[in-house]
Write a protein that binds this DNA or RNA. Structure first.
Lengths: 236, 236
DNA sequence: AGCAAACGAGAGCAGTGCTCTTGCATCTCC
DNA sequence: GGAGATGCAAGAGCACTGCTCTCGTTTGCT
């Protein structure tokens, strides 16, 4: 089995992806060049098209991989904290996402930056894309199970959407709590975006401290009503 | 005065910018092509370089214009609300920013999406860039003047940075309140980003309703302690 | 009137994504 | 094991891109 041809194919495919990722990290996604990859490989440009039908297809592959890495980072951070320490888990997840973004700015931009105009995300990206959000949703479910509730009243259409999400994912999370969780998610991503895309220059030089603030504020909002876990070590 | 040559120059410059903006709106910033503009103008591509030294310079011009428009929209929305109705002003500003983003997605992406790798924002973009944030900061100053205070303790380095900002801008805003304002700002931009860049697909179909939620939550956080304005019409 | 600056046109360089043909290597089926 | 189908790399080529340089012409200022 594993004919020489097939093995060469998978190896070359992996090599292309590796070089592509290097290029994206160095020059950004817009400057990804199939021809440059071909040159590095000692091949002619048309040969690369045997492995990826187009530049977009290669980009899609990179996007999927990046989502998986981000998801893995979030999962690992979450898993390292005691299950009942919801605040600690939130902090860990949020910082893991930010740390990953800081460490891999080009990849983060690939996922959360400007979408390429012509490019429509294919179906096979949505599963990996939801991996890191699932970590947050699972945390919400645990909060709910521990008796956490969120105050407030939701607009009926939003409530309906969220009920649908709950049904689809099979998660036991109250719509209101989920809505608060999504607001926290938006604040988290917004803080990272502002920091990473340079909108804080000439404003604040310590984005890390500001990020902590956002995380803490969201924690306060999400877990203020939670009546669990005799207050033990809550510090990160 | 206004020699024919000079007049022709300013007219052509304006025409180039107009065509460039059209192109960005239609095809996105990455697909902006000087050659295409030259074609539309009936000129040869090299002639355009008499007016803009490079593609980046033209993009910078577009960015500045867009920041000005966004700033103007925010200012207008703020001005339409009674000064003492801080909640209403926050709502108006937030919705104005979002509405502008929805109406001009490509321009918004130009401002807040992935920065072009090689591109460093020139000095002359930072003043227009801070125009819409100034609207928010002025609101904070009014809240402060009305006796609004924010709870919580800030990390010393963040507090120092914010004090510097206050000194630079000459704004009378407590650091803690400013920090809360910046968190609200991050949440606002995060919500818009997620909505506009398609990260809510397969999650929530009514981003408008969800956006309202974020705005309301931030309003709650910012103005909970404010002890002003006998509660009158607070509805948008 | 004379001169310098501004200007548009054109050719050209280096790069891009992508297609098509051509010949060789490999794998598969009889 | 040989014959035919398939996979693959190479090369040429098309239609683009940003940008540079040169070369006449037009314009405006002195």
């Amino acid at each position: 089995m594993a004919g020489a041809r097939e093995r060469a194919r998978t190896e070359l495919t992996a090599e292309i992806v590796r070089l592509a990722r290097e290029q994206v990290e160095r020059d950004g996604a817009t400057n990804l060049s199939l021809r440059a990859i071909a040159r590095d490989l000692g091949m002619v440009s048309s040969a690369v098209y045997r492995y990826f039908a187009s530049r977009d297809e290669l980009l899609t592959r990179l996007i999927i991989d990046s989502y998986e890495r981000l998801g893995a980072a979030a999962e690992a951070a979450d898993a390292a904290v005691r299950r009942s320490d919801h605040r600690g888990r939130w902090r860990a997840i949020a910082h893991a996402i930010r740390d990953w973004a800081i460490a891999n700015p080009s990849e983060y931009a690939l996922l959360f930056g400007t979408p390429v105009p012509g490019y429509a995300a294919p179906q096979d990206t949505i599963a990996p894309a939801s991996r890191y959000t699932l970590v947050l949703l699972n945390l919400l479910a645990d909060v709910e199970a521990a008796g956490g509730r969120a105050a407030g009243r939701l607009a009926p259409p939003l409530k309906r959407d969220l009920a649908k999400v709950r049904a689809t994912l099979g998660l036991a999370v109250d719509e209101t709590l989920m809505a608060h969780g999504m607001a926290a998610w938006a604040a988290l991503m917004g803080a990272i975006n502002l920091e990473l895309f340079g909108h804080l220059h000439n404003v604040v030089d310590t984005p890390g401290a500001r990020f902590d603030l956002v995380v803490e504020q969201e924690a306060e909002r999400l877990f203020a009503g939670t009546t669990v876990a005799r207050r033990t070590s809550n510090r990160a």
